[in-house]
Design a protein around this nucleic acid. Structure first.
Lengths: 222, 222
DNA sequence: ATTTTCTGATTGAACTGTCAATCAAAATGA
DNA sequence: TCATTTTGATTGACAGTTCAATCAGAAAAT
């Protein structure tokens, strides 16, 4: 998975020549920052190059076209977000409540939940309606997340004899998470990351009161 | 409030001269359609004019600049959405559950919940991170909605002795609604409007099981 | 010496905003 | 009722700007 805090941007002056992959990551990170600051509509190749402290022509050298740069940036973000929750689930045991808890928390880790990343993600989403390729990438992202969360909901519903539909419960959690992201995306969010996570936990508690409290899942070992 | 289905576009050929206000509405509707189809980044004044079947220069005549056209379009959408739920609440009695039910249903009325409108709304949202004026308009929209829904949640929580925080319960409902909108915005949504509303009702049921079922609020008169 | 990365000027296309001319409708006058 | 004037909406061409992409050559690595 891609490094969130890239050390490359710190060194001054940057090495003239860098391995292909590292330079591409640097430029993609610069693209995320630029989109976060200006939005997609007002992001130019020149802005991205300036943000990276490199020349305009280099961006085309590595990405050929602007469309391709944006496409690769979205791919990078989608991979990062997916890796993030997948790793969180993998690092947790087999208990469904613990896994769901881990997934929800993963969404609000400060590393992936930066203003620039949220803003860029949302900007791509806004364009997804008109660009089939974005639409598919955002859709696939959701689908995998949804599938995972739905199987966890199914387990909890069986365990707790809850009256919910697994698909709808999963969708409530996912949409709620995305909605909170939209709130946090604003330069001056109405509440912080902690309160965002707490909102998600309140949602989980409402759906699965035997397994979740407002602080997270109820650990059976305590 | 602005008419959702504008009769102007239906008449053919369109009258050469039209009152100022009507022409502005026609151009704003054309802007919504164009943003829905191409996204903000790829929407040009020419596209809008073409969509309206009018000349390029006329758009500038009525809106001076592209920025202003976008600004007025967002204002139009925000007013429309706000009027929509406010009218729904006003048309309902004083029972909090009935009012909440009406608000949730209003969000999914086919008139305001068209692909182009959702897509345009989301496109503005994506740009909001970088444009303070958009940010404020989207934020104000949310704030008013949130305040209204929070007071209803407060009433239900008192009535049903639910363990929730009113602010978080309100936020869960709003974010869930926004998240479902994001799903429905896709050109090929994973589910339809009815299922979207059903998801919201499932959310309301999880929060307020004494007042809501998966079909909506529980009518005390039956 | 050769290949790869990188720069900055240049090019050509696209777009925004302006403006003078045109035209439909309303107002006015006979 | 009909002709004339006025108003302001509308058009399309144009100027100026911005931007993506190209390219020739420099710099660095191998």
């Amino acid at each position: 998975m891609s490094a969130v805090f890239d050390p490359i941007e710190q060194i001054a002056p940057p090495r003239r020549k860098l391995p292909r992959a590292a330079r591409r990551v640097q430029l993609i990170e610069a693209t995320i920052e630029t989109i976060g600051a200006h939005g997609i509509a007002r992001t130019t190749m020149g802005d991205v190059a300036k943000q990276a402290g490199l020349s305009h022509g280099l961006v085309n050298f590595h990405f050929q076209t602007k469309d391709n740069l944006l496409h690769e940036t979205l791919l990078y973000l989608a991979d990062e977000f997916r890796d993030n929750w997948m790793e969180a689930v993998a690092a947790t045991g087999t208990d469904p409540a613990a896994q769901l808890d881990a997934m929800l928390r993963a969404d609000f880790r400060p590393e992936v939940c930066t203003p620039a990343r949220l803003s860029a993600w949302c900007a791509f989403w806004g364009e997804a309606g008109s660009r089939p390729i974005y639409q598919q990438m955002c859709g696939d992202h959701d689908a995998a997340y949804d599938l995972q969360i739905e199987s966890l909901c199914q387990s909890l519903i069986t365990a707790g004899a809850y009256p919910h539909s697994p698909a709808r419960a999963a969708r409530v959690l996912r949409t709620c998470s995305e909605g909170v992201w939209l709130d946090l995306m604003m330069p001056e969010p109405p509440y912080d990351l902690t309160e965002g996570l707490a909102t998600l936990m309140a949602c989980a508690q409402a759906l699965f009161p035997l397994h979740f409290t407002a602080q997270g899942r109820i650990d059976p070992e305590i």
